[in-house]
Write a protein that binds this DNA or RNA. Structure first.
Lengths: 223, 223
DNA sequence: AAATAAATTTAGGCATAACTAAATTATATC
DNA sequence: GATATAATTTAGTTATGCCTAAATTTATTT
């Protein structure tokens, strides 16, 4: 069986692969809040288990087996987040931390029971897709809010889940996944966004907007 | 923070203290499926943390601080068992194993939310008492079924939770905590028990009966 | 009281997974 | 293309928590 640490490394490699492409030892170490030397050590171990491809100074890649494990852990994490949110009422800025510990520990049986309870959901409380039993992820084509122009209408698709304070802040504007809004004005020179949510005008700073991903809506009247 | 292993040791010392009294290194090691030398090592560590009293060759005792931790873990375990059973439908012979992993990992917040969901319960699915938030345990005066005589009526109070196969077996007779029955006949020479559950006569072997604890009922007509 | 048996402890090792510090390789600059 | 800078790897250390084997202490028996 895999250790929790190994699972965390695989999950992180998967996520970094998604975003950037090449996953270097340094990037991985920074992501996991670990020294590069530690990452090198674990990567070597994962290589002997055939869960990653690796050549020194060249970065890491997941093998098919490694990707399967990574997706399994991500599925656990996101199902747990949604379960804690819906079944136990844990606030959305708290579910990440809790799921981080539970994801390594729940059985497949409990996973299946939560999945059933939740009605086989496809997204967690932050809008991140939940891989299905077979590791299939529904990819969305959402864009960072920072790419929006004046007058553009959209629906919140996803919000980064790691910073609890940021989530509370975003939640205070009701910017949950599924919420529709329209951009009233984008201030020039990398300034903040003024948006209209359900008739209320709200100002969102650029740094915050970077963490909000949206689906553009073509016809505002259809929202 | 304490490691999972340390928590398991404290929990085990508590349980052995409850049953037997003196807790020796050997007994503790056997209970935890570990070599005596390993137990000695951990006991020494726990002593430096002032969680146990210990003098070599003299056995271990929990300090007040150690008892608090032990009860906290036991509370987690039993709340989790009941939660998994009631909220997710995990069969009663499976909840122990699952809770064993989760008990070290859930937050006080989740503990409180499960407690509320369950209506502040006082016993887990096997009838074991759930310590309250302050570590107060309601002690019952149940006796092993093996002490029963012909004609004695009683109610199942508690069943040992560690052996999954045994639990399935006991469950097949419907001998869940709260179930009433009457002893029809105790076979002589350490023989099996014939009992009457809701009009059905069932034979329970002595080895199984040792793991079933009951509350005697004085007046059979009042059950 | 001495000898034997049983329990417990000490001593030394192993695996995991982190760390620091030094050596190496790769990349960027002049 | 040589050199400076940055990234990465190797080597050696630490802490957990387990192990085995040998030494010690306690308990029992004669």
């Amino acid at each position: 069986m895999l250790t929790h640490a190994a699972e965390d490394y695989l999950k992180s490699i998967y996520k970094l692969q998604e975003k950037g492409g090449k996953v270097s030892t340094g990037i991985l170490a920074e992501y996991l809040d670990v020294k590069p030397a530690s990452a090198t050590g674990m990567i070597k171990k994962l290589k002997t288990m055939k869960l990653v491809r690796y050549e020194r100074y060249r970065g890491v890649t997941l093998t098919a087996a490694g990707k399967t494990v990574a997706l399994e852990i991500i599925r656990h994490h996101r199902l747990l987040e949604l379960y804690l949110f819906k079944a136990l009422g844990v606030p959305w800025d708290g579910v990440h931390e809790e799921a981080e510990k539970l994801e390594h520990v729940i059985s497949e049986d409990v996973e299946a029971r939560m999945d059933e309870f939740l009605g086989y959901p496809t997204a967690d409380p932050h809008g991140a897709p939940i891989p299905d039993k077979n590791g299939v992820v529904i990819q969305t084509d959402s864009v960072p809010m920072t790419e929006l122009q004046d007058g553009q209408s959209c629906v919140v698709a996803e919000v980064s889940d790691s910073d609890s304070a940021l989530l509370r802040h975003i939640g205070s504007f009701n910017l949950y996944p599924g919420t529709a809004f329209r951009v009233v004005e984008v201030a020039p020179f990398e300034g903040p966004f003024t948006i209209d949510i359900a008739g209320q005008e709200v100002v969102i700073g650029r740094e915050v907007a970077k963490h909000i991903f949206v689906d553009k809506v073509e016809d505002p009247d259809n929202v």
